[in-house]
Amino acid sequence: MKKRSTFLFSALCFGMAFLYIPMVLLVVYSFNHSRLVPVWGGFSLRWYKSLFTSEEIWNSLLLSLQIAVVNATFATLLGTFAGLTIARFGRFRGRTLFTGMLSAPLVMPEVITGLSLLLLFITLNELLGWPSSRGMTTITIAHITFSLAYVAVIVQSRLSGMAQDLEEAAQDLGGKPLRVMFDITLPLLAPGMLAGWLLAFTLSLDDLVIASFVSGPGANTLPMLIYSRVRLGLRPDINALATIIIFTVAVGVALAGWLLLRQRKQRERDMRMASA
């Protein structure tokens, strides 16, 4: 038994090292004065300076953030509808097709999704004259399409883990279905919807392949800009950008964890007070 737990312990250490050493190196090299990324030439902040003065970076960051916020909001709305449908509505005509269309985007290779949406936009432009140009709108639509599937998974798993007693009680007391929905189900679902929003937001900020397919001239999202810079080799300013992103995410996750912990402690205190 002892032997097996040392094996598991070393597996865990190896796994964490494998996952995190590359990210640590990214951060370390971002402070390297040398232009040759992995060859140490002394501590320096020059790449951060060149990053902050690059207008190109700021423009693409702004575009990416705009797309991500609109995408996350619509994807959360549609994904919550979809999750409710799967978890609460039982059988209806077309359910198999619906669940199929919801789970396929999770595993579909990005090149296929990207190409098919591009060809859809071109066909629509020919038939209806819309969209007349590709850019922010088409990227947002493409992102909503795959993000809503992820939101639906989160919402659905939260709903199926949630007891239906409260909803049933409210219905028995004469609550109309929609009223029950807004007063009972949705408030209980709110943390799941928030998690879905954040996931949709980061998925959109992260996407390179689908955006490259459905974007037009002039609309460069942040990942598209990063890709065009690193595909020919190492770029120290991109290391600086990576460091900023990693720290933003780490702080965000730590903050979320702290808030959750505080909420849980508060609830425990309330329970004690109630039982006392």
């Binding site: 990210m23 992995p38 980061t202 992260d206 390179l208 190492l234 990576a242 995410v249 996750v253």
Partner: peptide
Amino acid sequence: LLIILPFWTSFLLRVYAWMGILADQG
């Protein structure tokens, strides 16, 4: 949380990290 955390950072930049590790002068 540590397993999920990489999901929230950029996929592209995590692939880029390996370019620095595996390069001839990496």
